[in-house]
């Protein structure tokens, strides 16, 4: 009993990936506990997106193993699809289904993948849309919403699958400054409710408030990890010092 609950929810061991000559993931070992919020930070091209996308196998890996809740990621097909249903993903560019309304965006997965009835799925979708503050936009199409609203719908769409873990790849970096907060607020709320989260972001405010751990990546490797306060005030590696120096300047 004890063993299963203490086992990490997401576990990467010895993960390697190359794009041709480019070594984008270098021997990554990372365990994420249930309920933990991990912020991944690092310079552009460090491999943060690749890491995030490898966790639900939108990106394949060349060596090593990734497992979710004790199950190794399946290669392809139905088994992989089933596992992905348990891993929510929020993209930098929202990627809401452009031909579906907000409500349909949120109910598609529950009805087609989880086989919920349309009525149940809609009721739950409305709850979630209310929770992220876009309940009154349910009948609109994505193109009719602001970026911040779209991203909150995207979060609701992922949550509707009742995922075990949520992955965020720079969820606020395509947003205008005044919309960043509304999305971060939703994410902080999610973290407080105990969701396991992997968040690629440069929002230090979010990292400080919500993260249990900061993972700093550079050149495809995890260079340093620590709790947010320690990392931001007392980084150990030169790469991290250099990077923080750059982003703190402005």
């Amino acid at each position: 009993m004890q063993e299963t609950t203490d086992a990490p929810l997401v576990r990467l061991s010895g993960v390697q990936k190359w794009y041709g000559e480019l070594h984008v993931l270098r021997d990554i070992d990372l365990s994420i506990a249930r309920g933990e919020v991990v912020v991944v930070i690092g310079p552009s091209g460090a491999g943060k997106s690749t890491l995030c996308r490898a966790i639900n196998r939108l990106e394949t890996i060349d060596e090593g193993e990734i497992s979710i809740d004790g199950q190794p990621l399946p290669q392809e097909g139905k088994a992989l699809a089933r596992l992905r249903a348990d891993v929510g993903m929020v993209f930098q560019s929202f990627n809401l289904f452009a031909h579906k309304t907000v409500l349909e965006n949120v109910t598609l997965g529950p009805t087609k993948v989880r086989k919920q009835s349309k009525a149940d799925a809609q009721a739950r979708a409305k709850e979630l849309l209310d929770r992220v503050g876009v309940g009154h936009q349910a009948a609109k199409y994505p193109a009719q919403l602001s970026g911040g609203q779209q991203q909150r719908v995207a979060i609701a769409r992922a949550l509707a699958m009742e995922p075990k873990v949520m992955l965020f790849d720079e969820p606020t970096s395509a947003l205008d400054p005044e919309m960043i907060k509304e999305v971060l607020d939703v994410m902080v709320d999610l973290a407080e409710r105990g969701m396991t989260m992997v968040v690629v972001t440069h929002e230090m405010g979010f990292a400080r408030t919500a993260a249990n751990r900061v993972v700093f990546m550079a050149d495809g490797a995890v260079v340093e990890e620590a709790d947010p306060e320690t990392f931001f005030t007392n980084p150990q590696s030169d790469r991290a010092k250099d990077f923080l120096g750059k982003i703190l300047k402005h």
């Binding site: 939108l58 992905r84 809401l96 598609l108 997965g109 769409r157 992922a158």
Partner: peptide, 11 residues
């Protein structure tokens, strides 16, 4: 991104 989002919800 449309296909990726669809795969990501488990379709």
């Amino acid at each position: 991104g449309q296909a990726e989002a669809a795969r990501a919800i488990g379709l």
